[in-house]
């Protein structure tokens, strides 16, 4: 009991233990609600909802009517849960940075690579996130929705996606880090 409590307080678990937990969550998702975990779809649901309210004409297409229906779907609620789950995880290890001065950009490696400016971090995150979401739209899911959730149902799409993701991720990291690779 004491051991497990101490383990929960650790900042970083063994990835195998955390992976087992995620695997169980994935099973429960199918068992309890017959759905798959996913993150990127929720952003499209929300974007569709906001877009429909502002410029209905631009969003009255096939994609937003049938593939990604706008609205507060269970994926959006799941994403809210992910947000709070991450905060709980950080709070249990006392690494929650809410309100702390370095909360906006605390990654040492990032600062060493790109410099200490916070706006750079936010700009890169913003641009990168657009790329991420666009790519997730093309592929039909992101790391969680397609690679993990699809992979556990042995969907071929998931393994194609993982292959593509690592191929270009490695090349991008090579370009960013060049000699420090």
């Amino acid at each position: 009991m004491k051991f497990s409590l101490n383990y929960i307080r650790k900042e970083t678990w063994s990835p195998y233990v955390a992976g087992i937990l995620l695997g169980l969550v994935g099973i429960l998702a199918v068992w309890l609600s017959n759905s798959l975990l996913g993150a990127s779809g929720a952003f499209e649901n929300l974007a569709g909802m906001i877009g429909k309210a502002i410029v209905p004409a631009a969003f009255a297409n096939m994609y937003f009517n049938f593939i990604m229906p706008p609205g507060i779907t269970s994926g959006v609620i799941l994403l809210v849960g992910v947000f709070f789950g991450g905060m709980i995880g950080a709070a249990t290890s006392k690494s929650l940075k809410w309100g702390k001065p370095d909360a906006v950009n605390s990654d040492v490696q990032w600062k060493r690579t790109f410099g200490p400016q916070t706006w750079k971090r936010w700009l890169l995150a913003f641009i990168g996130a657009i790329i991420l979401e666009y790519a997730a739209g093309i592929a039909g899911g992101c790391t969680s929705g397609l690679a993990i959730s699809g992979g556990m149902l042995l969907a071929p799409a998931a393994f194609l996606f993982i292959a593509g993701m690592f191929a270009s991720g490695i090349v991008t990291a090579l370009i960013i880090y060049r000699r420090r690779y």
Partner: peptide
């Protein structure tokens, strides 16, 4: 192709 673009974003952000 989705995976290929996704990797770029992932390594950036």
């Amino acid at each position: 192709i989705g995976g290929l673009i996704f990797g770029v974003g992932m390594a950036l952000t």
